[in-house]
């Protein structure tokens, strides 16, 4: 029954698209096999930059996220300036659209002409993604830290652990486990947002496809890029779902 329903729904959708008046033009511009083949090598090479940017950004984002979240959960008066910086950072970078962060970093930072600031927009763009996603991930970690019951800290304190040790050995490990599904969700989003580097002329997949389109008046490469992104994100998305379901089963099993 489920299969039948799926076939009918997809069939109807396909018929609507294929019989639409503009379909022949769309087909020629976006679904041309020869253009797909011609553009593929360049697009594939560009896609390597998306993956590289993602792989470099992810560990840095995790690091910043944990640091900022831990700083925000401290209470000591001496650390107030750090807490203030952490709050301003998260508020600022969660508020500014990621595209703007990328544009500002990519075009603004080199204009400062500071020693040691790279001029390669790939690095500047990746840095922008780290800034922007670091703020999101910090909030995810903070929610995880806040979700740990205060009795766990009381227990650690009673055993003589310092606040730092309680955070490191008791709170953070439990918090991290809880936030893995939302974290993976943010990382799926990050994979896609590497496409924003196209706005500062990095020859990643989208920019390469756009370049091809402008020279050849054919946008099939965009579809190729879309397929590549889907192929990259779907496995991670399924893994996230699976992990979330497993955790829910565990929590609901009561004794387990």
């Amino acid at each position: 029954m489920a299969t039948l329903a799926t076939v009918v729904v997809l069939g109807v959708l396909a018929v609507v698209v294929v019989t639409s008046p503009g379909w022949p033009r769309v087909k020629a511009t976006f679904f041309d096999w020869s253009h797909a083949r011609a553009a593929f090598p360049a697009v594939w090479k560009g896609f390597g930059k998306n993956v590289a940017s993602f792989l470099i950004a992810e560990p840095l984002i995790l690091l910043i996220g944990v640091l900022v979240a831990v700083v925000r959960s401290t209470t000591s008066a001496a650390l107030f300036p750090l807490r203030l910086i952490a709050v301003v950072y998260t508020d600022l970078f969660r508020g500014v659209p990621t595209l703007l962060v990328v544009l500002l970093c990519g075009l603004g930072l080199p204009a400062l002409e500071l020693q040691g600031v790279p001029t390669d927009t790939f690095w500047l763009g990746t840095f922008a993604l780290v800034l922007s996603y670091g703020a999101y991930v910090a909030e995810v970690f903070r929610a995880g830290i806040d979700s740990i019951h205060p009795s766990q800290v009381a227990s650690a304190t009673a055993l003589g652990l310092s606040n730092g040790q309680a955070m490191r050995h008791v709170v953070l490990p439990q918090a991290t486990r809880r936030v893995v599904p939302p974290l993976l969700n943010d990382f799926i989003s990050l994979q896609k947002d590497t496409a924003l580097l196209s706005s500062i002329f990095v020859f990643e997949a989208v920019f390469t496809a756009q370049d091809y389109g402008l020279y050849n008046f054919n946008y099939t490469p965009f579809v190729v890029v879309a397929v590549l992104f889907v192929a990259l994100t779907v496995p991670l998305a399924r893994f996230t779902d699976w992990l979330g379901r497993r955790m829910m089963r565990r929590e609901r099993a009561g004794a387990r």
Binding site: S151, Q152, G160, L161, P173
Partner: peptide, 24 residues
């Protein structure tokens, strides 16, 4: 404590050795 407050992410043995190792 009344509610035990054991550390759920650690094994029983690790619950017992955490303070001796890190504090003592």
């Amino acid at each position: 404590f009344q509610a035990y407050n054991l550390f759920p992410h650690l094994s029983v043995l690790e619950n017992l050795t955490l303070a001796p190792r890190k504090v003592h």
